Computed example of a mutant assay.
Amino acid sequence: MNILVEILVCVLLLIGGFFVLVGSLGLCRLPDVYTRLHAPTKATTVGMGGILIASMVLMTYEQGYFSVHELLITLFLLITAPITAHMLAKTALHHENRALRRTRSQHLIASAREQQPPAAPDSPNHD
């Protein structure tokens, strides 16, 4: 195997593994739901992205043609991770989980909880 390919795959695996480790530690160590959302989102996008791109480089070199499976998985993770974090934050707001006292912009959390969902078109309150 070419030494440059091995070095590239090793570097990508180390970067990916580092971000997955940091994201896992952040999930365990951060104090509240809202701050915990950041760590696994970054671990998924950067960490798993690095591992999957390393796999894509290795398989492309081994097979002799471009391996698209890992690229599609990486793109799927890049698209779904922010959406998942947003849904978890909205659920935490709905269940009225408290943020840390030192969190800035506490008034934004209160105003987000007060917002009502839009009325359905066939409801009696809809004009």
Rank of each mutant, 00 (worst) to 15 (best):
Leu37Asp: 05
Gly16Ala: 01
Ser55Ala: 13
Gly50Phe: 00
Asp127Glu: 12
His69Val: 11
Ser111Met: 13
Val11Cys: 03
Arg104His: 09
His126Pro: 02
Ile73Arg: 02
Val20Glu: 01
Ser67Tyr: 09
Gln106Pro: 04
Leu8Gly: 12
Arg101Tyr: 13
Gly23Lys: 12
Leu58Met: 06
Glu70Asp: 13
Met1Asn: 06
Ala92Gln: 09
Leu27Arg: 07
Leu13Lys: 09
Ile53Phe: 14
Pro40Leu: 03
Tyr34Thr: 01
Val20Asn: 08
Ser24Pro: 15
Pro121Leu: 08
Cys10His: 06
Pro118Val: 04
Gly49Thr: 01
Leu100Lys: 10
Asp32Ala: 07
Met56Pro: 08
Leu25Val: 12
Leu71Met: 02
Thr80Met: 03
Pro40His: 02
Pro121Ala: 11
Leu100His: 05
Ala120Gln: 15
Val5Cys: 12
Met56Asp: 01
Val68Leu: 10
Gly26Glu: 04
Leu25Lys: 08
Thr60Asp: 02
Ala85Leu: 01
Ala99Asp: 01
Arg104Asp: 08
Glu62Thr: 11
Leu13Ala: 06
Gly64Asn: 04
Asn125Ala: 13
Ile79Arg: 03
Leu93Val: 07
Leu58Gly: 06
His126Asp: 12
Leu75Trp: 04
Ala54Val: 01
Glu70Pro: 09
Pro117Asp: 14
Leu88Asn: 08
Leu12Gln: 02
Thr60Ala: 09
Glu62Phe: 03
Leu52Thr: 00
Leu12Cys: 09
Leu77Tyr: 06
Ser123Arg: 06
Asp127Ile: 01
Asp127Ser: 10
Phe76Asp: 03
Val33Gln: 13
Ile15Gln: 10
Leu25Gly: 00
Ala39His: 12
Val33Trp: 10
Arg98Ser: 11
Val20Gly: 01
Ala85Asn: 11
Gly50Ser: 04
Thr60Ile: 08
Arg98Gln: 13
Leu4Asn: 14
Gly16Lys: 06
Phe76Glu: 08
Met1Ser: 13
Gly17His: 05
Glu62Met: 09
Arg113Tyr: 03
His38Thr: 14
Leu75His: 06
Leu77Ser: 04
Pro31Asn: 08
Ser24Trp: 04
Arg101His: 09
Thr44Phe: 11
Thr103Trp: 05
Arg113Ala: 01
Cys10Gln: 14
His107Gly: 08
Ile7Met: 15
Tyr65Asn: 02
